[in-house]
């Protein structure tokens, strides 16, 4: 009985507390950088597209709202021919970002993306691709991967020995 009265009193005291509500949109909330908002595709430190079209974001997506097609440039660097996110299906779970092995796909603190027309929520690669590296500044997948691409030959990646000379006889 006493506890009930104490509860009532405690709750009543809340009358004089400061309110936690942020009055959006007059007042803009401060959103942490790892907020899961609008998805973007970032570029590497050298300005080249980070996405290598590995399809892992697409398969991780629980609502199957990511679709892409891989293609390659003449030097064997793989990138997406198209990259489409249907934001009208997206649940902003961030699984795509977790699955991405190259930090290409990232969720941003932007959440103001309402539309009157659902079709306008289908974002293509040109809508998604930004010109910077996003949250992760220095990572470049192709610099660590063993694959040779234009401007990076075999053995030139990080932590790699020069290519083996198959005809060499040295032990």
């Amino acid at each position: 009985m006493l506890s009930i009265l104490r509860t009532l009193w405690t709750v009543l005291l809340h009358t004089f507390r400061k309110r936690a509500t942020v009055l959006y949109p007059e007042e803009k909330p401060s959103i942490p950088p790892r907020w899961r908002g609008r998805i973007i595709l970032s570029r590497g430190p050298d300005g080249a597209e980070r996405c290598v079209a590995c399809y892992l974001c697409a398969v991780a997506c629980p609502v199957d709202c990511i679709s892409l097609q891989a293609t390659e440039d003449e030097h064997g660097r793989r990138y997406p021919e198209f990259f489409r996110i249907n934001f009208s299906r997206c649940i902003f779970c961030g699984f795509c970002e977790e699955a991405c092995p190259t930090y290409a796909i990232q969720l941003t603190p932007d959440f103001e993306m309402c539309e009157y027309n659902r079709q306008s929520l289908v974002y293509e690669k040109e809508d998604l691709l930004i010109s910077g590296p996003g949250k992760y500044h220095d990572y470049d997948f192709y610099r660590v991967a063993g694959l040779a691409i234009g401007g990076k030959d075999k053995g030139q990646a990080e932590n790699e020995e020069p290519p083996v000379d198959v005809r060499g006889l040295m032990p």
Partner: peptide, 8 residues
């Protein structure tokens, strides 16, 4: 209810 829950 808002008042007592620190809302508006």
């Amino acid at each position: 209810l808002g008042l007592w829950q620190d809302r508006y």
